[in-house]
Nucleic acid binder design. Sequence first.
DNA 1: TCAAAAGTGTTAAGTTTACACCCATGA
DNA 2: TCATGGGTGTAAACTTAACACTTTTGA
Lengths: 224, 224
Amino acid sequence: MNYYSQYPKFHVAVDCIIFGFHRGALKLLLQRRPFEPRAGEWSLMGGFVRRDEDIDAAAVRVLHKLTGLHDIYMRQVGAFGSVNRDSGDRVISIAYFALVDIDEINHELTHEHSAYWEDIKNLPPLLFDHRDMVDKAYVKLVALVHRAPVGFKLLPELFTLTQLQQLYEAIIGESIDKRNFRKRVAEMSFIEKTDAVDKLTSRRGAALYRFNEEAYNIEKKFKL
Amino acid sequence: MNYYSQYPKFHVAVDCIIFGFHRGALKLLLQRRPFEPRAGEWSLMGGFVRRDEDIDAAAVRVLHKLTGLHDIYMRQVGAFGSVNRDSGDRVISIAYFALVDIDEINHELTHEHSAYWEDIKNLPPLLFDHRDMVDKAYVKLVALVHRAPVGFKLLPELFTLTQLQQLYEAIIGESIDKRNFRKRVAEMSFIEKTDAVDKLTSRRGAALYRFNEEAYNIEKKFKL
DNA sequence: TCAAAAGTGTTAAGTTTACACCCATGA
DNA sequence: TCATGGGTGTAAACTTAACACTTTTGA
């Protein structure tokens, strides 16, 4: 019994906005809610914070459980705490967004959790205030992507410049001039051309590039 | 008893980073903590969220209690939820930053709460993770101030261009060319020159300006 | 009359945007 | 041989940055 114990306590949850990129479109990993109330509705993947768990660790745990991945790029979006946001009981929820390479996730796990990739431009109605969370996360993603080289988290290790451009176009929602885009990429020494060639999307083949994190940490200049 | 009730509950608090501007310097309103543990240490003004209160409303309540002001400009900074961040008990805290006009606040109230304005460049050591909260809020403020006309929240209704420039210099932490600054201000039609003149800081007198919120909402262009 | 802050334009450098054709290859 | 996506440069428009002197007035 101390000074704090006169004050109320609340359930605290985390909810994850998981971004992926596939075939030129930005996607979100959404789940059919597995418990009541409102079981079966589309929702973000979430979970309650445990007693001896940092809130960031709770988000990592939830993401790992759903994707099988460790070391996911993740940022906090913010806390959502309206009194009636959750119709089950009062729950204060902390939203996180994550950027993952769709090809790396464990599809059996997502399948077990009734989770599916949905196009960001065509999302179904979501549970509670999850749509607000998504919107806020998306605004943050767009801002972030201009300032820091995080787009690569959504791509495989090796990627073509066309893929990279389509990714940026999908995120910022407008088309980019191909020559100007490639000019800017060429100026970033940490986006390295490899000897490998992708022959899947064109007869001619496209050079594969790689993001060099160490080189970026020295140069630290990014602008898109 | 429902599905949620198997999960733990937590104390949830809000902490407020209150920015002010006085004599060319950006300031924070800090408080001597009024209860144990660690009573008397410098801390942010905070409070526990009440059972039937939105988290945003809790921040509004705390700010009102300390300053006497309604309608304070406020934004969420984020949730801080490390297990041991508070040595009293586990508390998940949501940080908010606020921009206030120092001249409008009720100084008796701040005095009653042992709260004082400290220069942002020379802060004392703060309780728990409050310094992290301040740093994160400050980064957000700097980013915000480039994109949106929020600086005016820190100034009186009428202000001189020199004051406005000093405010921006204090926030972004670098000096700005006077002619370039005034040129940009002149292009923003929502920063209006009034007939009033300030005679306090110069013999010659300086024109007083006003921020016109309605005009801004039509024009919606800001860049600094 | 002078000290102190207010006010005022121009030019060069850098950045951004617009724009169209040839290349390599497999089917 | 042709359809498909890959790859390449230049010039104009715009934006940003650098820079120094005159004005006003109260003490």
